[in-house]
């Protein structure tokens, strides 16, 4: 009874589905929320670009039917920066994982937030380097067992919302794959917000993280998020560090307006260089 089409199908490369993600992996759920948020936004899909780095979440670029880039490891943000500066009309979404964005590409993340470049970063945080075999990542909670911390991790983990707030992001939120509706709304807010926006989605990697930590399969993980998450929009960002079995604080933590990088840059050069500077101009979406 395919009486109506799946609303997300229009944004998938259907011929590539089933995707490679493991049974119960959370990444696909985030793509559902993203596709719905694009519908809600009313944006012209031809002007939405998805840029991913490397890793399981980096595969998103290959499954969505938007114009998309699957870039080099950690470098999704530099590619996105070029895109956004060359064509300010595009809505540029960086869709990648915690390892790619906050470890290998960590400096790009910090400085893009500092500049407040108008890109929308969706960070699927599964707490490990998944595609390469479940090694500890900067986001791995203390005591968690990974393939490179078989006795448990002893390093403090990176608190991403706090980092992005300190760096200057205009929008920072965190949800889990349990919060499908809130995630869709946060993605819509992200798409609408001018400036650097960051959404962390805590997402299960049942194959490598949950299994090694005795936390069950994908379904058990989503139930865990349901039981262990707490919505607190005005949370003190210090409290957002995650531990293995403790509370996961969710919400929208930062929503502020700062001068946007591209616009500031164009105005700056126009003032300094006058007629010698030519900002990108478009007719019907084409650079003239």
């Amino acid at each position: 009874m395919a009486a109506v089409a799946n609303p997300v199908e229009q944004f998938l490369r259907s011929e590539r589905i089933p995707h490679i993600w493991c049974p119960g992996c959370g990444i696909g759920t985030t793509v559902n929320a993203f596709a719905r948020a694009v519908i809600d936004s009313g944006l012209d899909p031809l002007k939405v670009v998805v840029v991913s780095g490397i890793g399981c979440s980096g595969r998103v670029a290959g499954y969505v039917s938007f114009d998309s880039f699957h870039t080099t490891h950690g470098r999704a943000i530099p590619f996105a920066t070029g895109l956004k500066l060359a064509n300010p009309e595009l809505t540029v979404v960086v869709y990648s994982g915690d390892g790619d964005l906050s470890a290998i590409g960590g400096n790009h993340l910090i400085h893009s937030a500092r500049r407040n470049l108008d890109i929308k970063v969706i960070c699927v945080n599964n707490l490990v380097y998944a595609m390469t075999g479940g090694q500890s990542a900067p986001t791995t909670p203390e005591t968690a067992n990974t393939s490179t911390s078989p006795y448990g991790s002893f390093e403090p983990d990176l608190n991403l919302p706090k980092l992005l707030d300190a760096a200057g992001a205009s929008y920072v939120a965190r949800w889990t794959t349990y919060h499908v509706k809130q995630m869709e709304r946060a993605m819509l807010e992200l798409l609408r917000k001018k400036g650097f926006g960051f959404l962390e989605v805590v997402s299960q990697c049942p194959t490598l993280y949950q299994r090694r930590n005795g936390m069950g399969d994908g379904l058990e993980s989503v139930k865990f998020y349901k039981e262990h998450s707490k919505v607190k929009n005005d949370a003190c960002l210090d409290d957002l560090a995650m531990d293995k079995i403790g509370e996961i604080i969710c919400g929208r933590f930062v929503d502020r307006d700062r001068p946007e990088y591209g616009q500031t840059m164009r105005e700056f050069y126009q003032n300094k260089l006058g007629a010698k500077y030519r900002a990108p101009e478009f007719q019907d979406g084409v650079l003239v």
Partner: peptide, 25 residues
Amino acid sequence: CDLCGMYCPDFAIYGFKLGKQGVAQ
């Protein structure tokens, strides 16, 4: 309500509303 569709990581299920005559809306 399509909650199943929102959760499904594999785009394998979705829900839709039916009108009075049992026709998809």
